[in-house]
Write a protein that binds this DNA or RNA. Sequence first.
DNA 1: AAGCTTGATTTGCATATGCAAATGAAAAAA
DNA 2: TTTTTTCATTTGCATATGCAAATCAAGCTT
Lengths: 249, 249
Amino acid sequence: MSATQIDAVTLDGAGPLYDQIRRAIRDLILAGTWPPGTGVPPEHALMEKLGASRMTVHRALAQLAREGLILRRRRSGTIVASPPASHAMLDILSIPEEVRELGQVYSYSILQRRDGKTSRELAARFELGRAANVAHLTLLHFADGAPHVLEDRVIHLSTIPQAADEGFAETPPGDWLLQNSLWTQAEHAISAIAAEPQEAELLKIDAGEPCLLVERRTWNQAEPITAVRLLYPGGRHRFVGRFGPYGAV
Amino acid sequence: MSATQIDAVTLDGAGPLYDQIRRAIRDLILAGTWPPGTGVPPEHALMEKLGASRMTVHRALAQLAREGLILRRRRSGTIVASPPASHAMLDILSIPEEVRELGQVYSYSILQRRDGKTSRELAARFELGRAANVAHLTLLHFADGAPHVLEDRVIHLSTIPQAADEGFAETPPGDWLLQNSLWTQAEHAISAIAAEPQEAELLKIDAGEPCLLVERRTWNQAEPITAVRLLYPGGRHRFVGRFGPYGAV
DNA sequence: AAGCTTGATTTGCATATGCAAATGAAAAAA
DNA sequence: TTTTTTCATTTGCATATGCAAATCAAGCTT
């Protein structure tokens, strides 16, 4: 069952020894030569076959274990893990970057700003647990002068008090927050909705047209920092990600 | 500039020493005590302060470097890295899992299947580079008997020939492929579109209603495996991910 | 002043050694 | 037979040691 072709492990001489070992075994797994459940030879066997010390072999295997490719248990040995439930990775670029990535000219304008306690309606829209002192901003981002995305955001002034004195004239609030705050947790939801009439007018599309809605909330430890709703005209925008079974490529 | 409060590094005595060191430094970074650019004390200094060997300190720092929290350069030393361009992670569950996760009963039915060379129209819809021998399937997934998502898929028979003899009666093709093929690359795009009349009828929604469209293509090395378009009624579905600046939480 | 050489600092890699923890299997005891 | 004990295998952790590579800085030369 766990008889593995140890001879299949061959080094390519490129780079550090531990990394050669790591890549050699990783490639056998990714190529399917060692399918899930296959026994990986014990450290001593690899050590002799490859002429490396046990610590070096261990380093390679420990890293593969951290990456989730193999499972290791004392005495029972090491086996190839089953591919994990996969993740799709979507880059979160700042909106200016996103627009420039498309080769277009970025600009933005603040449509409205109001600071103060959250109304019941606002708290509901952003799923805020309790009333809070926030800055509430509405703004529109443009790509080559055309509406690109409509942003509706609250910033928790109790967590980021310096936002109260910031006009966001130079930098839109999303980017400003990235520079002026630390976040440890975020939640991200993507859904599709029909544009409301006033949203459609701002985005220069027809009411009822499908839009991508990105809702994001971020925290530092337990303190909420900001919550934002980004409305993208659906026909024009898509989120793309490229990845492999064990993470980004 | 790089004078760091080395006294801030304190161990908690829980678990392996190298991991205590790793976590101690990681926490100082995440808490903002050591902002980006801050100099991390050299291995020798940490070694003396913590009473650990250099190899152990090195192990902790090397791991933090792999995780992207710190940057290390010979002779110049180690500094805290700037938070990376973040990724949002969305779990890709199989559709049966996705439905069961919601606490609903899963079922599916194959609406149509046709194997053979791709038509021009089909090749365009799935962005296939050239004509190919594929299985083309259309199916509908149900949650508690109600339409959940409409699936339109091609499977490359040159890469996965055994799909030609598979009826997908027990397992829907997405899950079957996960079990019967290896993939090394995937591309994933999310957009919002209005439902076409025939799509709307199948999903039991009104034509023109906003839907989430997930398009995914997977490869093994350079060989295409499958391409799929998943159409979710927008109002009912959203993709949610939770994550931190340095990866999944 | 500009370029070159030398030296010192810091990280990176590999090895050898020793012990500890987990645990499957065999041996011994009930 | 069943349970317990012992033993051996395998991984995990930590240390000490030595050398190599990168590179900043100081000193030297021209």
